[in-house]
Amino acid sequence: MNRKNDQVNDVILQTAAVIIFFIIIMFSINLFFAGHYSPGGGFVGGLMTAAALVLLLLAFDSKTLANVLPFDYRIMTALGLVIAMLTSLHSIFWNRPFLTHAYDKFDLPLLGEQTLHTAIAFDLGVYLVVIGVTMTIIQTIGESE
């Protein structure tokens, strides 16, 4: 189905997609940070972020998305693996077994005293890998002629 010279106007879809994109991104960040105490985590958060990017791909095109968000998703996958590996490896330097996690209380500005755990850095690696793999699959399939 190739309609040449057929002007398309997706103004409702594009306007709605720009607004809904930010709602999905905020929801995915919420899922990512809430994963320790409630349902969610790196996997679902990464999938929701990829869903927001797919919504932009549907409303616009892959060239526009590459201009707006110039990420190389293969490099993002590698970066996620490196982050997960480093957070697993750091416990070796304190004479603990591989993948031992640690936590401590920190006095953050604006947020007050919060407990930070190295599991969130491991989860960040999972998040980046899930976004990278999903977007690589979708872009590779979607752009084949």
Binding site: V8, L58, F60, D61, S62, K63, I138, G142
Partner: peptide, 9 residues
């Protein structure tokens, strides 16, 4: 459209 993801719409 018959195509889900365009390269340059």
């Amino acid at each position: 459209r018959g195509e889900i993801i365009h390269h340059d719409r």
